[in-house]
Nucleic acid binder design. Structure first.
Lengths: 149, 149
DNA sequence: TGGATTTAATTAATATATTAACTATTCAGG
DNA sequence: CCTGAATAGTTAATATATTAATTAAATCCA
């Protein structure tokens, strides 16, 4: 009856994360970074300035978590917050020179890990996996469920 | 350059989790359970007694996290801890009658969600995705890295 | 046998996730 | 212009993740 627990989507995904994240974390740890802090930096390199809300979408990190993550990146002098003048509610997050410098240092090594993981299957297999997961995710019920009362 | 961030394995997996977990969480919340608490219960139903260590392997939950998770399940009278007599270091976790009763109530609904997710792709696609992820995960470097010192 | 080593579970310290509530602004309309 | 709804960011409260250190018990072996 409970035979499919190990094959349920959450378990399959968690197993894949558990197997692959340690490689990344080991690298990030050498630069005193967490995986989440890394994700924020990586987005900032390709976007000069970005709001917290947009950062949340791009990094898949929940907005409340971003507060602390950015706080810690800020105290490491890797990013800085700048309040928008046009809309004083908005806050832009920007990478400092020091934060940008990390790109050249860490990025190639991350790419190496990415490549190593990809090389474990054929490009077709990878693409297929990606498509299946997207297909499963996309059929997501519209977030209109808040109409409940 | 940074074009592949969105297609990196961690992001692909997190996106899939973000898209599918809310469905489960909404269900669990109706029974005042978290996803992790659910995972522990689900394993306990198919295993009369189990140690924390083994529970960690089966649920993919880190042992230190399990302490609190089991604490809370215990205070809800859903599970109980029993110290082993043969090896007094070991602690067995067991579902109470009340804990077991939840299976009949919640399990079918979880199966429904599982089915719904699976039905979004063909069985071949699902199987393929599963195989690719396993293939990527399995090549995991042997945990012999502790021989560093 | 007794000390070094290993093992199971837990604690500690810090970072993040989740959900709800709150603050300061902005905006839409009357 | 002024109020009510919407928005961006944050705070609050609780649960979990991560890594290292601790405690207690079992094991190994000279």
């Amino acid at each position: 009856m409970t035979a499919s627990f190990d094959q349920s989507l959450p378990m399959i995904l968690h197993r894949a994360l558990d197997a692959t994240m340690p490689d990344y974390r080991e690298l990030f740890a050498r630069y005193k970074l967490t995986e989440q802090q890394w994700r924020v930096l990586r987005v900032l390199w390709s976007t000069r300035k970005i709001t917290s809300a947009e950062l949340s979408v791009r990094t898949l990190l929940p907005a409340p978590s971003l507060v602390g993550i950015i706080d810690r990146l800020e105290s490491k002098k890797l990013v800085s917050r700048v309040r928008s003048v046009k809309d004083r509610r908005a806050v832009y997050v920007i990478a400092t020179a020091e934060g940008r410098a990390l790109e050249a240092e860490v990025s190639p090594q991350v790419t190496e890990i990415d490549k190593k993981l990809r090389s474990r299957v054929t490009p077709q297999e990878w693409q297929s996996m990606e498509n299946v997961l997207r297909k499963i995710s996309l059929n997501d019920a519209p977030t209109t469920s808040k109409t409940a009362t």
